[in-house]
């Protein structure tokens, strides 16, 4: 369960302070699929980063399974990111020096190691139609293929929460549908929670719950 209380994140731009996330409060139950929509610059990425432990809020709290993540030390917080939370980004986030399979296994370098990680990686490559690309380097993959590898990587440590920031932003419609379907299957199979930022209303409508962000202020969209 994710509980967010009075979360505030302020940036100083040219001497002016600007609230990128302005007093956000909400709760997301385990296994929910939530979409966040909103204009560019409305604070969606900032919000995901606050929830995922990537940037420290000015005030307010983020509790995951009852633990205030911003009261944790670096090790615990990193451990949390390693095992409980995964990110999927809107840009290519693969390491150019690693093959597709190695990229998928990358999170295992930082702590939690599942014995069947390689098998798991292969299963996901297959699910995403990339079996023959396991030894390809990112430079040899198309944008959509890279994104799918990044999605497989997000699953490798069996997270409880996946934070996806426009994961299908630059994919063609068909691949986009595949990815969303993959998320839904994953959600059904393992009960993993999804928070997906998207500009695509159709994608948003396929999630169980929609949040909308405008000028840092979050609201339910119903």
């Amino acid at each position: 369960m994710i509980e967010v209380r009075n979360l505030v994140k302020t940036y100083r731009i040219a001497g002016q302070s600007m609230r990128a996330v302005d007093d956000a409060t909400f709760t997301i139950q385990d296994g929910e699929m939530v979409s966040i929509i909103g204009h560019s610059g409305s604070g969606k990425t900032t919000l995901l980063s606050l929830i995922g432990g990537l940037t420290r809020p000015d005030s307010g709290e983020v509790k995951i399974d009852g633990v205030n993540i911003w009261s944790l030390g670096d090790r615990e917080l990193s451990g949390l990111r390693n095992t409980k939370i995964s990110f999927v980004y809107q840009f290519s986030s693969l390491l150019p020096t690693l093959t597709a399979l190695e990229n998928i296994l990358l999170p295992t370098a930082f702590g939690h190691v599942r014995q069947d990680a390689a098998d798991f990686g292969m299963i996901y490559l297959e699910k995403l139609g990339l079996t023959d690309k396991r030894d390809s380097y990112p430079s040899e993959l198309s944008g959509g293929q890279q994104r799918r590898v990044a999605i497989a990587r997000a699953f490798v440590n069996n997270p409880r929460i996946i934070l996806a920031d426009e994961p299908t932003g630059d994919l063609d419609e068909e691949t986009e549908q595949d990815v969303i379907q993959c998320f839904k299957d994953m959600n059904k199979d393992t009960g993993v929670t999804f928070i997906i930022v998207t500009h695509n209303k159709e994608v948003a409508s396929r999630m169980g719950r929609q949040l909308r962000m405008a000028n840092g202020i979050l609201a339910e969209n119903s």
Partner: peptide, 15 residues
């Protein structure tokens, strides 16, 4: 960016 990504995957400061 790469280092930030590693951190988001669970790399500690020490890593």
């Amino acid at each position: 960016r790469e280092l930030g990504l590693l951190r988001s995957m669970g790399a500690t400061r020490g890593h």
